[in-house]
Amino acid sequence: MTIVVAYKWAPNPQDAAVRSEGTVDFTRAKSTISEYDPVAFELARRVADSTGAQVVGVTVGDASIDTSLARKAALSRGLDRLVIVADDRLVGADSTRLAAVLATVVRRIGDVDLVLAGESSVDVTEGQVAMTLAGQLGWLGLNAVSSVSASDGGYAVERDVPSGTVSMVVTGPAVLATTADAVLPRVPGMKDILGAAKKPVEVLSLDALDVPSAQVTLTTLSTSRPAAGNRQRVIIDGSDPTAAAAELVGALRAAKVL
C-alpha cells in the first residue's frame, strides 16, 4: 500500500513585497516546505512504519519548485520517494487546478489508500486544496485531523472540531488534512539529508497527465494593497513600568477607549 503526502514548496507572504498597485512580488521570499506540511510527513511515516506501506511525496507547481534543495528538503523528512510535476503553465494555478493535477498523479501512482496533507499552505492559507483533491478523486475528505493510526481494516482517525474531539474509523480511500499540531515533526539530520539524495524522484510532465480542463475561469479586474491602517505608533519606554502604565492608561482614557 502507498500513503501519499501532498505538500507544497512555497514562500512566506511575510517576506513578500506588495507593490503600491497591489501586485505581489515573491522574488525576495525564499521557498521552503510549507510551514505545516512536515506534520503530514511525520504522521505518514509513523503510520507507514506500523503497516509496512511506502510513503510517496507529491508536489505540483511551477518550474521553480524542482530544485535539488527542494527535493532534499522533502526526501529528508521520511519519504520513500518523490513525484513532482513542475511546469510553468501552473504559475498562479488556483486550488482546483492544483487539486486536479494532484488527483491524476495519485491515480497514476496506483495503490494509494491514504493521502495526507497539511492544514493550510503558508502562501495561500485557504485549507482548500486537499478537500478539493478528495472531490476530484471521489474519496472521503476530512479536515482537522489530529491523529491517524492503523486499525483493523482501516485507519482510526481523530478530528478536532469546535464541539470536541470526534473519533472515526476510515475503511476506504481518504484524503486527510491534518491539524498544525497533530504531531511534532522531526528535524532532518545530516544522515537524513545524505540519504535523501539517494531516494528516487520521478518528474512527470504535465502533458503526460490527463488533467481535466478548467470550466470556470477568473479574469482579474484589479488588484490593490490594503490600507496599512494608519496607526498612531506612540511608543512608550517601559523601563519604569508604573510611569509607562500611567501614561498608557491616560492616553487610552483621553482617546475614550477605556
Binding site: 535539488s68 534543495l69 532534499k72 528538503a73 532532518p188 539530520g189 545530516m190 539529508i193 545524505l194 539524495a197
Partner: peptide
Amino acid sequence: AEEAGAFLMPGV
C-alpha cells in the same frame, strides 16, 4: 559548487 559535484546540505 553543487553543479561541480559538491553535496549541498542546507538547514543544518
